[in-house]
Every structure is written in C-alpha cells, then in structure tokens.
C-alpha cells in the first residue's frame, strides 16, 4: 500500500463534527413516528373457509337392504315377505308398482320387477333359472349384465372402499353396487349432480380473471351459502 508517504492529502471529510443538535432531533422525530405513527399497511383479510362437517360425511350414499330386507312402511318395520305373502295371486304379480310408486324405473330394458326380484320369495333376488341370492349379495346380480364393471370393482378400480387399506389391520369395507347406484335408475347415482364445495380462497390472489365467474356471470364467492347448504345437506343426505 501507500507506504506512509509523508504528504498528507487534504481530507475533505474532515471538518465539523456534525452537530448533534441536528442529528438528535431527527432521531427523536423518527422515534416518535415509530411509537405514535399510524399503521401504514394492514394484513389482507382472511376469510374463514371452514365447511360444515356434515358436508364431509364418509357414509355411503344409499343404505342398502339387509338380509332379510326390512323396510319401514307406515311406521311398521316389515320384511318384504311379511306383506307380499298376502299378494301371491297371479294377478298381483303382474300388477304395476302398487305400493312402490316412488320407484323410478330407468334401468334400460329392465322394466319387469322379476328380472331381478324373485317372484316367489320377495326377500331374495333372482339370478335366473330359479337360483336366488340375498339382497346383501347384490353384486352377483349386477354381475350378470355388467361383468366387466364388477371385475373392475373386484380389482378395486371401480367403486368405493372405506375403512382400512389392508384386511390385516381392519375392515376393508368395499361398498357394493347399490350403496352408490339406485338399482332402479343406476345411471344417475346420488352424486351425479352436486354442488361443489367452496373454491380456494387464498391470500393476495389478485383480481380474478374474467373466467373466474360462474356460469351466471357472478363474481365468484367461495363462501357462498356454504352454511345454508350444510344444514340442508343433513336432510337430503340420507334419502
């Protein structure tokens, strides 16, 4: 470096020690601002986006009939045969949906009850040629016409599994066909047209692009009526 050359240059920085009378007031003013000054910026609003627990039910869509099938009619708990043994005439067999008007038959060409129900033993389903099976074994019945879907179901790729992923650890509850599909109108399962749960509503997401409007042209509101639906859902769920 400069080996201490004995020719000191004039250092222009040298001079007055800057008056504390100027520095200190600035600092004190700044301190006052920090202490009393207003909040310049507020955090963005964060909506609570919880949805009601009832919307997150893991129950099957439909409750299936057991063995023997029990139905609730006019406050009585009956198996099918408890009534149907009274209507065993040939006439009654061909009668159209006397007590079962609510049934909507939309199962392709299957308009005749006895394609699936056993005509003699109403507590059983028929697999044809006089072979019957229980209501709980509805899969065997469906497999007669939909073998590939049932294959997928067995494989696991079609249908729901709840509970445990390994039978070693607990019940692997594979839902059967009619726990999702209405056997009388299977193409429109209970979840075919449902209202989606709220869209994401993160912070600072900017202005939604034009396509972030719903089909009615309303600006999206992720929390629209989530609670209303939660309460309604309760009633409509277990039909």
């Amino acid at each position: 470096m400069n080996q201490g050359t004995p020719q000191p240059r004039v250092d222009r920085f040298r001079g007055h020690r800057f008056s504390a009378y100027f520095v200190a007031p600035v600092f004190f003013a700044l301190a006052a601002w920090f202490w009393f000054g207003p909040e310049l910026e507020t955090l963005p609003e964060a909506n609570d986006t919880s949805v009601h627990a009832s919307l997150l039910s893991t129950e099957p869509h439909r409750t299936i009939l057991g063995d023997p099938p029990r139905v609730h009619v006019n406050g009585f708990d009956r198996t099918c045969m408890e009534c149907h043994r009274l209507f065993q005439s040939e006439e009654a067999k061909t009668q159209k949906l006397l007590q079962h008007e609510h049934i909507r038959m939309e199962h392709g060409p299957n308009v005749d009850c006895y394609i699936c129900h056993d005509a003699e033993d109403r507590d059983q389903l028929t697999l044809g040629n006089g072979v019957t099976t229980k209501f709980t074994d509805v899969v065997s019945l469906c497999a007669r016409c939909h073998p590939s879907i049932v294959d997928d179901w067995k494989l696991g790729s079609h249908g729901r599994t709840n509970g445990y992923w390994s039978a070693d650890r607990g019940e692997v509850r594979k839902l059967v066909c009619t726990e999702c599909h209405d056997p009388h109108a299977p193409r429109t399962p209970a979840m075919s047209k449902i209202e989606p749960l709220p869209a994401p509503n993160g912070w600072r997401q900017g202005n939604p692009a034009p396509d972030h409007h719903d089909s009615h042209g309303h600006k999206r509101d992720p929390l629209r009526e989530a609670l209303r639906r939660a309460s309604e859902h309760h009633e409509s769920h277990d039909k």
Partner: peptide, 13 residues
C-alpha cells in the same frame, strides 16, 4: 392401516 381422509370422503370412489 386406515385409508386417507381424502379417499374416505370421495363420493365416487
């Protein structure tokens, strides 16, 4: 041994 929550709630499997 249980299944994940997202799977259990999935209505369509």
């Amino acid at each position: 041994g249980k299944l994940p929550a997202c799977l259990e709630v999935c209505p369509v499997g």
